[in-house]
Nucleic acid binder design. Structure first.
Lengths: 213, 213
DNA sequence: AGTAAATGGTAAATGGTCAATACAATAGTC
DNA sequence: GACTATTGTATTGACCATTTACCATTTACT
């Protein structure tokens, strides 16, 4: 699939479209209209059509979009053919949450390894995912050809972990640590901080409340 | 503090500024320059100055910004005087992650209750936070005057939980479930889906890789 | 004094995203 | 054939975020 440039937001929505479509696939329905998708995700039908236009998928005028075809089409855009392997660095609560949450959800994206420095966790298997010592990050990543890493270690450790990952040839990092990271421009980095999110909610909740009082 | 309208991103950055400043407060430094803050967060100095301009804080030309004053100023903007109370609904891995992550970090924002439907967890205390049965959400929220809720339950349960929360008078919701929620406009809602994030990283990692190959 | 350097303050330009709107084309229905 | 529902597409305007550029002030140094 050759798509010039997909906006970040569109990529996010495509992921959501697919997940939503997978849910209604089991039903007897074979087609879906843009306004149905829109309603499920609380956006406008035009937004949906526009996104699908960008990836070059055309629906049927009278029946809407073929659910199965659309799911495949989105897969062609956002998945790779062979799939991508994912590692979780830091098997604390957050790392575990990710693994269980993810279990059996995506076929093209699989969590194949976890890393930690707690000896009690090493060489155990959590929810089907083997855990290794962080010292072996480079080795395992190269051996298993892992391209994506999720960092859920304590923030002090994040920078050195990130450096190790980049040197090992990782292609994308999802950083759940409040510590902003510095990585090579060849590596895609996405940062998310739960505390910032919560403070943001608190702020706008307060504002809302004042406004409507 | 009277600020017309703060953009979402600015609020997020203010939260980060404060956290970063708290870290360097212990040092002997009393002042900090915009380019120093910028460097720590990997943004531009102008961005920092612009954000601070929006909240009406002025620095000293030669010394930069007074760290302590700035922290206080940010607090005046994003905190409430009395503080806000937070509840975690769903004491699985993610809920626990949030609680431990949060412990002792913010004084104005405190997690005071957790809810779950697992009888083994009810009436226990996790990391200082008591856990109640979800049936008691309304009661506890009103009793303790909780204004913010974090939803980390399985996605099927999210809509009914959200409705309960709204009816109980919650002011802000942070939804970690892939299920988009529908809440009254008086309630501020922020949604975050870990799988979408990961798929986004996977997509742009792939793109990056193709581009630089 | 005069001047250069560093820094904060502010305005203007740019680019991305989205909502609203409009409308042509198509396929099915009456 | 007219009507209706839907997709496909373009346009506009608004808003937001970020970058660029420029100005003003202070300090240090000559």
């Amino acid at each position: 699939m050759f798509v010039k440039h997909l906006p970040h937001k569109t990529v996010e929505r495509l992921s959501q479209y697919r997940r939503t479509l997978l849910l209604i696939l089991s039903k007897e329905k074979t087609h879906v209209f843009s306004h149905e998708i829109a309603q499920m995700l609380h956006i406008t039908p035009v937004q949906v059509r526009r996104d699908l236009m960008l990836i070059g998928y055309s629906g049927n005028l009278r029946k809407g979009y073929d659910i199965k075809e659309l799911i495949e089409m989105i897969g062609k855009i956002i998945d790779t053919e062979k799939g991508q392997k994912v590692a979780v660095v830091g098997l604390g609560n957050l790392g575990k949450a990710f693994i269980s949450y993810f279990k059996g959800k995506r076929s093209k994206l699989t969590i194949v390894a976890a890393f930690d420095n707690n000896p009690y966790k090493i060489d155990k298997v959590y929810d089907g995912v083997p855990c290794f010592h962080v010292d072996r990050i480079s080795e395992i990543i190269k051996r298993d050809n892992i391209s994506i890493a999720i960092i859920t270690v304590p923030s002090e450790q994040a920078p050195v972990i990130a450096e190790t990952l980049v040197l090992a040839g990782i292609k994308g990092i999802l950083n759940y640590t409040p510590k902003p990271l510095n990585v090579s421009p060849y590596v895609y980095l996405e940062e998310y901080d739960m505390i910032t999110s919560l403070e943001k909610v608190a702020f706008f909740a307060k504002k809302n409340d004042e406004r409507f009082k």
